[in-house]
Design a protein around this nucleic acid. Structure first.
Lengths: 333, 333
DNA sequence: CTCATAAATGTATTCGATTACATTTATCTA
DNA sequence: TAGATAAATGTAATCGAATACATTTATGAG
């Protein structure tokens, strides 16, 4: 294997100079630089990242922790993260927790071993204490999911507001019995959306019925199961607001299977605006989250953190938007 | 920062012994081990992976190169890869090429810098020469896409066979004018599927019309556009076999928009069996690929490669399966 | 042209763990 | 119990690049 020493010998300079050519080229004269690069070329030299990393005590790698990479919601965010990471010479390590809290913990804990310079976590389900503790030691950014903790940099939409918009839309269409299929209730994001849902009902003088708030897990299957049960037990609502497009589509599938129609019999609103939302039939009215942008912002925040830049605003809230399609119809009051 | 030297001092042993406790525990007596671990615990010592990596000239990281992580076909494979990687103490670096050949090249070329111990590439669109060259130097496995090169370990399904099954199914339902929306034709996988499509037609004494083979790029959009054009120019077929579920669904969308019905007017078969295939309406008849398993096998192969194990079979072919759903109906001959 | 200063390069140490080789200690055999 | 062998531990070199500090060379001011 060719090392800097070999290049230095051939170019007739010191290894320090060779190193400078690669890591701090401005400190080397033009002639020397050329000489070194030529020698490197000739020897097919490639810088050994392993050695650089040790010396610099940096990995140039960040880790992304998420519940499921095959969920397009998360993978879109990852794309945003990676694009910014790449431009800044960082690589992205994947930490798919498979929705397993132990795995989530393991990924986070091993960071002491310096296999990454920072983390972006798209999930925050383990105890807040631990998350806080880790974020005190490491460069960590939360995105999408978050915990109630002042000090941790976070990128997300305003979930209270998003849920409010979705619920309000249904109310404006004349619905009064609106089922809310929520995400896991120990996730603050879900709590916020429940808040938004309730706020909207209150605002429009509709009563809040705790039975109409049913906990799902964001998955297609849970939406399907919950809806099936509702219909089977004669608790069919006139409208459903689900915390993910997957659950919304699962619910629609169940509705159709029971011979009912969307939106004629039941109106459905989803959340996220993933790709299928526009392709599915009926196309899905939903609250869109700027996935790619969330990734971009999270990575930028992490770069600032890692560069020890001063963060002026560590809670970034991006815009969500109500996208009206066919799954709610235009039923009037 | 606490290092092995600190631990060694506290435990009153040499640093070599401390190292052994962590990397080769069997070589150390029980008493010493305990003493060392206690000291490490007390000092909150964490092994520095950076240093270990340099010394061992290993990263314990593999890289996965793919065209688009937000495409669920690829992300399912990644999950398979990651699960095996994790069990074997490898981490997974993400290389999303965004379908950009230059990026694909860049990821591959930088491997000389030793930032990964091996690669699994789910895309093989750059020139075969270069791929071959890289695979000679590095541990590399191709999965899904492949090139025509004896020596490179590859995991895939038999695409000729898969396409044959899809086409045969349509023929058995009585179709004679079957459009094949193929993948990019410079990808061998697409060529193989075209071969399978033609084989089936020949086998059943149907003529092969080159105009019926139209090149797409696997995307929803390309399926939609191709189908729209066909209908607009009065070249509507009675059946469509698309090289991806996305293109199939795009085609269905176009068909519906022109007031035609699937499967009544046009039967559609997809490829891959991604999640939407069963959820979409009509649910999609398709050729299923074992995505997760492809990932698993690819990673196992790579582990063998990296461990310098002898590979007895470097071309692994997994089973594809025809999944019959609603998008073809039961039209009889 | 000289001296002061800046730019370029070189020397040698360092990052922290691993490991070849050397030495000490324990275990076993006859 | 001596001597042989195995197990445990220690010493010191090593991985390859980065960098603090020292030295040399170039540049500019007067």
């Amino acid at each position: 294997m060719t090392t800097m020493v070999d290049v230095a010998k051939l170019a007739n300079v010191s290894n320090a100079t060779v190193s400078r050519v690669f890591s701090n080229p401005d400190a080397v004269s033009k002639d020397t630089k050329e000489k070194v690069l030529k020698a490197a070329e000739e020897l097919n030299y490639e810088l050994n990242v392993l050695a650089r990393n040790l010396r610099r005590m940096k990995t140039e790698v960040i880790m992304v922790i998420l519940p499921d990479i095959s969920n397009s919601f998360f993978s879109k965010i990852v794309r945003g993260i990676e694009s910014v990471a790449m431009k800044n010479n960082y690589k992205v390590l994947l930490g798919d927790t498979k929705n397993d809290l132990d795995l989530e913990k393991e990924y986070l804990k091993n960071l002491d071993q310096k296999y990454a310079d920072g983390v972006i976590s798209l999930t925050a389900r383990i105890d807040a204490e631990l998350i806080k503790e880790i974020s005190d030691k490491f460069n960590m950014v939360l995105a999408c999911e978050y915990i109630d903790e002042e000090s941790i940099p976070t990128v997300s939409i305003n979930n209270v507001e998003g849920a409010y918009k979705a619920t309000e839309h249904l109310i404006n269409l004349g619905h009064e019995k609106i089922v809310h299929i929520s995400g896991p209730e120990d996730v603050i994001l879900s709590q916020d959306r429940i808040k938004g849902y309730k706020n909207a009902l209150n605002e429009y003088n509709l009563s809040v019925d705790a039975d109409l708030i049913i906990e799902g897990d964001f998955s297609y299957k849970s939406g399907y199961n919950i809806m099936s049960k509702l219909i089977k037990f004669n608790k069919t609502p006139t409208a459903v607001f689900a915390d993910s497009d997957q659950m919304a589509i699962g619910a629609i599938k169940a509705i159709k299977e029971h011979g009912l129609k969307v939106p004629e019999d039941i109106a459905v609103v989803g959340f996220d605006n993933i790709e299928i939302a526009s392709i599915y039939e009926p196309s899905l009215t939903t609250i869109s989250q700027p996935m790619y942008k969330i990734g971009v912002k999270a990575m930028q925040l992490l770069l600032d953190l890692m560069g020890n830049k001063k963060i002026e605003n560590n809670k970034i809230q991006l815009e969500s938007k109500l996208i009206i399609r066919d799954s709610c119809g235009y039923k009037s009051r």
